[in-house]
Amino acid sequence: MKSAVLVFPGINRETDMARALTLVTGNAPTMVWHADTSLPAGTDLVVVPGGFSYGDYLRCGAIAARAPIMDAVRAYAGRGGLVLGVCNGFQILCESGLLPGVLMRNARLKFICRDVFLKVEHSDSPFTRGYNAGQVIRVPVAHGEGNYVADDDTIARLEGGGRVLYRYCSPDGAIDPAWNHNGAINSIAGIVNERGNVLGMMPHPENHVEAAIGCTDGRGLFAGLAAHLEAAAA
């Protein structure tokens, strides 16, 4: 599995992401600088990691979304290539037009850094096939702007098309406003585009892949992607 991790000024989760990809898939990713204009040949997965690209100036992800490398990512996604955006990466994908909607300031205005519970809505996606439908996983979040907002039509299309893959939930999987820490519409934590090959999610699965950390619930996402690519290549 050949992954490419994009690096923008101000991003700070790229090494976590590279470490997780290496640990779970067995292959170290290529780090790709934002000013580059092409992705490495044969890239199977592009990852837009988390952090604070350009210091969150203007709007979170707004400036990174206009970086030269993003034209190559748009073309790659247009050909059906897999793209994963985490946290600031999710914001960048929304700003770049690859995903609908926008991540607004958390409803209670606080930056939230803690573990949350996510319900895996279904396992029919490359991004969820490492889990069971309805499974609850525990992964960390660290963001001030994770409150997913889109217009009613967009939400209806996302929900109707099974495009919400991850939702904030209670430890036993109940969708409850009390466990929707940032106020996202319908407790949305992660969505895919219409074609299903671009995922954006606020939580950080890459930070729960090692037993030493105390939880390995994030491994399934990367293992599922590797299994998907292996099956596609067979």
Binding site: L58, R59, A62, I63, R66, E95, P100, G101, V102, M104, V149, A150, D151
Partner: peptide
Amino acid sequence: DKLLANTVI
């Protein structure tokens, strides 16, 4: 249109 505003919101 391209940068200063996010016309979604």
